[in-house]
């Protein structure tokens, strides 16, 4: 379908001084002179053997482009999930245990703010404070994984924080309500009655039971972070998957767009599968065969 939208990569590349026969020559070279159906057929059959074709504009295999971008997007998404979980779970537990108190309300107020603040704006504030004013971090970009682990992790810190803030806010609220639910259960009261302190009881009995909805949300967030980080990638000029799609659309490098979308579909399926597996881990009751 995407192949049919107007505009063609050959005229995009050659610009406004090119002669018509030059555009034809380039189209031929790129394999764009065959019919749309034939191109679609070639692409589909190629994909089954792991061949996504060659990018029209970069002239390198799409798989090579995508692999390089995954090296940025996946670590960034994992880092953001790590940070958001790290922030969200303590807040969720704290708020739930102080349910209805002033502390609970103020924390929930903060998470509301975290959801309301657009993350690109938050990202710019981070850059302003930590890159321009304090000069602790660089304003963006990534040195490349061959330069060492820490230097790259450092480069991803601000973008990961910017991505994690709204995610952490959502997660904290989910954690809180799930925990409040389990705290009112009979088994929790029994646990307290048997002499466990409040936090022991939460750790041993309530936490795991509250995890199921939290895991669901983390799974959804991960898929979103892989593909949806495009604005943050722009603010920090990171070469991630989101920008690859964006550039592909602008330059009419449609073979890249199609292939990345297919890969994203696969990755969502895989993440959902992993989340399902994680349910089984946290809740032994689900392991019983029906």
């Amino acid at each position: 379908m995407i192949e049919i939208i107007p505009g063609d990569p050959a005229s995009f590349m050659l610009g406004i001084n090119a002669e018509p026969d030059t555009v034809h020559a380039l189209k031929k070279e790129l394999g764009l002179d065959v019919s749309k159906f034939e191109r679609y057929y070639n692409w589909i059959t190629g994909m089954f053997i792991g061949d996504f074709g060659v990018s029209y504009t970069y002239r390198v295999p799409v798989s090579e482009l995508v692999m390089a971008r995954i090296g940025v997007s996946v670590p960034l998404a994992l880092y953001a999930i790590f940070l958001s979980t790290l922030i969200a779970i303590p807040i969720g537990i704290f708020s739930a245990s102080n349910h209805g108190s002033f502390k609970d309300w103020s924390f929930m107020g903060f998470t509301q703010l975290g959801i309301a603040i657009p993350n690109f704006w938050f990202a710019m504030v981070l850059v302003l404070i930590f890159s321009i004013y304090l000069k602790w971090f660089s304003a963006g970009g990534i040195p490349g994984w061959d330069k060492g682990f820490l230097i790259n992790l450092k480069a991803l810190t601000l973008p990961a924080f910017a991505l994690a803030l709204p995610q952490a806010s959502i997660l904290a609220r989910i954690m809180r309500s799930a925990l409040i639910e389990t705290l009112s259960q009979d088994y929790f009261r029994t646990a307290r009655a048997s002499g466990l302190t409040f936090f022991q009881a939460v750790e041993k009995h309530a936490f795991r039971n509250a995890l199921i909805p939290v895991l669901t949300i983390i799974g959804l967030q991960f898929s979103f972070l892989i593909a949806g980080a495009i604005i943050i990638e722009n603010v920090f000029f990171l070469p991630g998957i989101g920008r690859l799609i964006f550039q592909g659309i602008i330059q009419r490098d449609l073979i890249v767009v199609e292939s990345v979308v297919m890969l994203l579909v696969f990755s969502v399926i895989i993440v959902n599968f992993l989340v399902d597996m994680a349910y089984l881990y946290v809740d032994p009751r689900l392991r019983v065969k029906k």
Partner: peptide, 16 residues
């Protein structure tokens, strides 16, 4: 390559 104008400003200011 920095496409976003605001990011370009930040990159110069931060010395990147």
């Amino acid at each position: 390559f920095i496409s976003d104008p605001t990011a370009a400003f930040a990159a110069l200011m931060a010395g990147d």
